[in-house]
Design a protein around this nucleic acid. Structure first.
Lengths: 183, 183
DNA sequence: GACGACTAACCTATCAGTAGGTAGATTGCG
DNA sequence: CGCAATCTACCTACTGATAGGTTAGTCGTC
């Protein structure tokens, strides 16, 4: 049995990906890991502390999976298709990206959480732009890498957002074809 | 002074665009229009009734603005740029598209609201696909209209979602350049 | 025109449930 | 012992929802 703190973080992450941090309560988290809500407050004094911790942990996990993609695939096309697959996998569990979900709740988040969120999106877009620059020889596109990176990152976030309404995948798949058309 | 029911609907729409339906209560709506919460329940017996009414009214307004775009602009490029501008204007008020916001809350919505939402997205994508087909002669794109329509609709939803976190417009503007690159 | 029936639009009061958060006691381990 | 982790017990605030009542206006009929 892992650390309670880590358990809480894991359960919170899963719950936020489904329903947002507004629908996650200290009580339900406590019940899920078998403690009382006061104990959750011991590890995360306020909801903001929990939010920041969860976003930072998610950002780290996300970056790790992008690093794996970098090592596993050689071509720019394969790397970006693997990037799209990360989103498709999130959708398969009827989840959203944790940060995409929290972005929709940004008006009820404090500054610390907002800047952690913004950092996540910038880093992800930075990775995509890096791939595009590194493989610019293979590339067949009019737009600069920074634009394509923003289109892919925010586009895939929007795609899983809309696809989840109908439990489909049509939009993520259109983005896969878009990626293929770039090369 | 307009109808109380319409006032409630208008205030609810504005509040949902900012913070989602999960952060809208019958009490705050009531206070905003100067009645008691029980009176809001009179017009909208349950929160689901309110949600459906608001989505359907929003869909109607949205379609009306697309119709105006259709009449006002001649070229496919101008029409799609005007489409993107609709989203940029939403973002200017630090809002999300009402339906994009509610899509993030889909797990706590009932079936009636979900299908109203899905209908909205299908209609909007249908309009974009229609423009693309109608102006296929001007078009310079590899992908079929249905794919481009999904990319633009879900992409712009994602763009305002992410841009709002930093109060910027970088991502919506990348989509504007993407539209220009299609022609 | 007057009168009863009906309805729309609101009200007060209250409910059970849940939210985030706190104080202080208890437990168990190094 | 001392400290970390967890507990019990509670608070205040707010949620959606309901019951039952009031007011003002409309409508059909004699």
């Amino acid at each position: 049995m892992q650390d309670k703190r880590e358990q809480i973080e894991a359960v919170a992450t899963a719950a936020i990906k489904r329903a947002g941090i507004g629908n996650v309560s200290f009580r339900t988290l406590a019940e899920a890991v078998g403690v009382k809500s006061a104990s959750v407050h011991y590890h995360f004094p306020t909801k903001s502390d929990l939010a920041v911790a969860v976003v930072e942990a998610y950002a780290q996990t996300f970056q790790a999976s992008l690093d794996r993609v970098d090592r596993k695939f050689g071509s720019g096309e394969d790397k970006l298709l693997a990037f799209a697959k990360v989103f498709e996998d999130v959708l398969a569990d009827e989840n959203l990206c944790l940060c995409g979900m929290m972005a929709s709740e940004v008006m009820s988040l404090d500054e610390a959480t907002r800047s952690a969120l913004a950092q996540f999106f910038r880093d992800a877009e930075g990775w995509v732009a890096g791939v595009l620059k590194q493989h610019s020889a293979e590339l067949n596109a009019e737009l600069p890498p920074a634009d394509i990176a923003r289109i892919l990152m925010s586009g895939l976030e929007g795609a899983i957002l809309l696809d989840r309404v109908e439990l489909g995948r049509a939009r993520v798949r259109s983005f896969r074809r878009f990626i293929k058309s770039l090369f």
